[in-house]
């Protein structure tokens, strides 16, 4: 296994607040690694440290084999960074932006121009190449921004919330572009507030909460840690919800969170075990408690459930916090 990014014991304080409390990570080359966590969890601080923008207080990190503290210039030659805002000069054209980045990567005048044209083509921006970026749509800007970070053909790229604020179509288009890069062997470290994005793109995920690693693993493994299928029922009237909760508590899988009632007071959900037998047991318990179920749904656990389980934050809460 070839490790592209490795982090050990990373700590960082801003004044009195400790934002990273000892982070360890290893990212295999040619894969997408997702950092998932609520706002202020420390995701961006990790990325900025790896991109040599921040100095950690303790710990070590290497990117593409180079030490971020001792060989920052070599690290910079090996990375591309796409931050939370499209880091472009809005007054320059798309082409001029890319040529500038390529020149500052010391590609030489002719190769810089050629590479800019190539990137524009690759990201379907040739038609807008000679228009000021000011006139671009949000999706085009993000594409150009991603293109700018790929100008130097870096083996490692950092995507810090690359699709925040994008419409669904542009988001899916950007995911496609990221997948294409990974297929060509690029390693991607992705931070995101969207569980779906991590689920779609990442081979492995680290859940970060309050500066610590709350969990780490492949998305499927993480989902397995929170138990088997989820059963969600809707009862006819709010007064039945408590009875349903008590009934389901008798069948909820061991070691998992007890059944929870939604804010609307009508929906109750629980993690089950034993597959179909668990569903049957739940149905029996509900019947015995004479709970009137108007709707039910059995589903695989989502990363949302993982998140709730690990951090005590709801996905909804997480997304509002990020806005």
């Amino acid at each position: 296994m070839d490790i592209a990014i490795s982090v050990a014991g990373l700590r960082k304080k801003y004044g009195e607040t400790e934002v990273l409390k000892g982070i360890d990570l290893a990212v295999e080359a040619g894969t997408v690694y997702g950092l998932l966590g609520p706002n202020g969890a420390g995701k961006t601080t990790i990325v900025r440290t790896l991109a040599t923008l921040l100095k950690p207080d303790a710990g070590t990190a290497t990117v593409a084999g180079f030490d971020v503290l001792r060989q920052p210039q070599e690290v910079r030659r090996s990375i591309g960074l796409t931050g939370q805002y499209a880091a472009l000069d809005a007054g320059l054209t798309g082409r001029e932006n890319l040529v500038l980045v390529a020149t500052l990567m010391h590609l030489g005048r002719r190769r810089a121009r050629a590479r800019a044209a190539e990137v524009l083509e690759m990201f379907d921006l040739t038609h807008a190449a000679d228009r000021p970026v000011r006139t671009y749509s949000g999706g085009m800007r993000r594409r150009l921004d991603l293109g700018a970070s790929l100008t130097g053909n870096p083996p490692v790229i950092f995507l810090d919330e690359p699709t925040t604020g994008l419409d669904p179509v542009s988001r899916i288009a950007l995911w496609e572009l990221v997948r294409k890069q990974v297929a060509e062997g690029v390693t991607v470290l992705l931070t995101t507030q969207y569980l779906e994005e991590a689920d779609q793109l990442a081979h492995r995920i680290a859940v970060i909460d309050k500066g610590r690693l709350a969990a780490e693993g492949a998305p499927a493994d993480l989902k397995r840690t929170v138990g088997g299928e989820r059963l969600e029922i809707t009862v006819r009237a709010p007064e039945m919800a408590l009875a349903a909760q008590a009934a389901l508590a008798r069948v909820s899988s061991v070691g998992c969170a007890p059944p929870v009632v939604d804010e609307d007071g009508l929906r109750v959900s629980v993690a089950l075990e034993n597959g179909i037998a668990g569903v049957s047991a739940a149905a029996q318990e509900l019947q015995q408690a004479s709970v009137e179920v108007v709707d039910f749904l059995v589903r695989r656990p989502s990363l949302d459930d993982v998140f709730l389980e690990l951090t005590g934050h709801h996905k909804g809460e997480l997304e509002t916090a990020n806005r």
Binding site: L53, E74, R76, I79, A87, V101, L104, M105, A148
Partner: peptide, 13 residues
């Protein structure tokens, strides 16, 4: 503010 300085800082310049 718009992150250009971050980009410059991540370049080997």
């Amino acid at each position: 503010k718009n992150g250009l300085v971050d980009r410059f800082r991540s370049l080997p310049m």
